[in-house]
Design a protein around this nucleic acid. Structure first.
Length: 635
DNA sequence: CCGAAAAAGATTTTT
DNA sequence: TCTTTTTCGG
């Protein structure tokens, strides 16, 4: 693409952002303001002006965003540009593959996800003779991550645990290191510590990537922020793009303050505010603005629509949640009957539990829908099991992976036996996977347990043998064959689905030579990128809707305790984030928004009396009186 | 070691 | 209500 085409069709603010090449740049990209376009065109502009693609580092939060960036760059430049684009965590993993030896890790390290982390933490609790209690390992995992994500000391964080978390997490760190594993927080934290303490290393990476670009900057946490600062240096060519009004991950340690104080960090920073909205109608933007204006900690913005006024935002009141769901179903049916495509419609709610009534109503009204739920493909048990077999091939010290599969399918190896094995390996300082064979020879257990161990040892040896000469898909197939896992699954209740998932995994496995890289990719990916955008209405949480758009948006459950959620209502910060959440939801819509609330709602099997959300009056404008309809439909 | 049963708790979840 | 996690008995 030629130089002038890069700026073609962009508005003045967008042009300013794209033309900027040197020094720090802050782009406030309001909802629907063509953010991705600006980012991609800016990168293309840098390349056309002679910056080597290899010198550009683009950091995002999701694989999807990174993929889209790369696709669109390829579309503009006509070829694959070797720009480094990926998530913060992928960058951390890439960095560590190269540099891990500096902190005593091999480059074949494992990456522990939340489940691995929780499981290791409960083992540490047991080892220290602390009675776990419900959800304790989850709370500790949260604490460990939150501490490193926010760069806080453990005892600075009030968590109300009945014991001192420090020894547990210290043991966790020790065990994790012995397993040559990093958890998600480490992928940011470890590179950060290495870069902060080693000036040469810092200089090396600074000169490797003189151009930095960060998407969704409002969602960076303190650790990511510091990592970025050590990569950027003082006068760095750092471009950050984000929208403080769409910061909805504070509860995970993200700090909106980062985007708000960018100008203090870089006084020379150019600032561009993208206020031209290409997505929504005027009425929708007006409602969104009048809502978000109630937040005190924000940069004022005035989104302008390029489309007409459009239909007013509707607020509907219902008697109970079933009627609300039926009302939404009915409205959607009407939309579809008048020609709207189901996949241009989204139902967005605060909590997953609201999906149920909606689903029931949709089933009744025969409305095709897809629920985007929390359960992610790679978190399915069967997928994790299969990948765990692969993990112990790459890293035989990976205790979590081994503990996961040594008794899958059942072969009589229980927790006790694993404990003995773990101790055995630790005493001899050998990888736990190698300890199995020796433990069998030493007869550390007897009877059924010994038989089980022997069997696992045989299986492991067989897999190791096959792994040497096959591609990954065949290795996976081999694992299924040798272990008899597929047959075992078929006897389970949901076995058929699980077997299908496994098939899907194998089918999607393209030949990568390096198993380690394959596993890295899988552990950093949440769902299989499969656009289920066929003729179906989308149902999801407000969080998941960020970055998407629909012609028609329905947001039910606008009640005190739900939106704003009861767990976020005590602080101003909490309320502001809830408000942003609703703002994100409303600004997903191109044509119409319908908000609703119910006087009665069944919550955890109990019928509760609800009051309308404080946010509703903030949206209502005097010239557009609330449309109150009582849905008389029976269910 | 495994299954059943009881108890407790139940936002959001980019990686 | 329903799911997850712990405990207890065979």
């Amino acid at each position: 693409m030629s130089r002038d085409l890069i700026l073609d069709g962009l508005n003045p603010q967008q042009k300013r952002a794209v033309k900027h090449t040197k020094g720090p740049l802050l782009v406030f990209a309001g909802a629907g303001s063509g953010k991705t376009r600006v980012i991609v065109h800016r990168v293309a502009n840098l390349i056309i002006r002679g910056v080597s693609p290899k010198e550009i580092l683009c950091l995002t939060f999701t694989n999807k965003a990174a993929g889209e960036m790369k696709d669109r760059l390829r579309a503009i430049l006509g070829e694959e540009a070797p720009v480094w684009a990926g998530t913060f965590h992928a960058f951390g993993a890439w960095f560590l593959r190269q540099e891990a030896s500096r902190i005593g890790y091999p480059s074949s390290f494992a990456i522990y996800d939340e489940a691995d982390q929780r499981s290791l933490i409960s083992k540490c609790l047991k080892e220290l003779d602390i009675k776990p209690g419900r959800g304790m390992s989850g709370a500790l995992a949260w604490l460990a991550n939150f501490a490193r994500d926010t760069m806080q000391d453990l005892n600075e964080i009030a968590c109300g645990l009945p014991f001192d978390p420090y020894p547990v997490l210290a043991l966790y760190e020790k065990r994790k290191r012995e397993s040559h594993a990093f958890d998600f927080a480490d992928l940011i934290f470890a590179p950060l510590t290495m870069l902060s303490s080693d000036e040469d290393l810092r200089d090396a990476y600074r000169s490797r990537f003189p151009y930095l670009l960060v998407d969704e900057y409002q969602d960076t946490n303190p650790a990511q922020y510091l990592l970025l600062m050590s990569l950027a240096g003082d006068g760095g060519n750092l471009c950050v793009v984000g929208d403080d009004d769409q910061a909805i991950y504070g509860w995970r340690g993200a700090d909106v303050g980062n985007i708000l104080k960018f100008r203090d960090d870089f006084p020379r920073a150019q600032v561009v505010v993208l206020e031209q909205n290409y997505r929504s109608t005027g009425a929708i933007l007006e409602a969104a603005s009048s809502l978000i204006c109630h937040n005190r900690h924000r940069v004022p913005k005035d989104l302008k629509s390029v489309r007409g006024r459009g239909k007013e935002v509707a607020v509907r009141e219902f008697t109970d949640d079933a009627m609300e769901a039926a009302g939404i179903a009915q409205a959607i049916e009407k939309l579809i009957a008048s020609g709207a495509s189901p996949d241009s419609i989204g139902v967005l709610y605060r909590v997953n539990s609201l999906s149920r009534v909606i689903e029931e109503a949709f089933a009744q009204w025969r409305i095709p829908y897809t629920v985007y739920r929390g359960t992610r493909f790679y978190e399915n048990r069967e997928i994790k099991d299969l990948l765990a077999y692969l993990r112990i091939l790459v890293n035989p010290r990976d205790e979590e992976a081994l503990a996961r599969v040594i008794n899958v399918p059942h072969r009589g190896v229980g927790e006790k036996t694993i404990d003995i094995l773990r101790q055995y390996a630790r005493d001899r300082r050998i990888p736990i996977a190698y300890a199995v064979g020796e433990a069998v020879i030493d007869r550390v257990v007897s009877g059924a347990q010994l038989k089980g161990l022997e069997e696992f040892h045989r299986i492991y040896a067989e897999i190791v043998c096959r792994a040497g000469m096959n591609d990954i898909a065949s290795i996976l197939g081999g694992i299924l064959e040798v272990t008899g896992y597929e047959e075992a699954l078929k006897t389970e209740p949901d076995g058929e689905d699980r077997v299908n998932n496994i098939r899907e995994l194998i089918a999607s496995t393209v030949d990568v030579r390096d198993i380690g890289r394959y596993l890295e990719e899988k552990s950093l990916m949440s769902r299989l990128d499969k656009d289920a955008g066929e003729e179906r209405v989308s149902i999801m949480t407000l969080h998941m809707s960020k970055g998407l758009e629909f012609n028609y948006v329905f947001i039910p459950g606008l009640e005190e305790g739900i939106l704003p959620h009861s767990r976020s209502m005590d602080t101003d910060r909490g309320i502001e984030e809830e408000r942003r959440l609703l703002y994100v939801g409303i600004t997903r819509a191109k044509k119409e928004v319908s908000l609703s609330w119910s006087k009665y709602r069944t919550i955890y099997g109990r019928e509760e009396f609800q009051t309308p959300s404080t946010f509703l009056p903030e949206i209502l404008q005097e010239d557009a009186p609330a449309v109150t309809e009582l849905c008389a439909e029976n269910s």
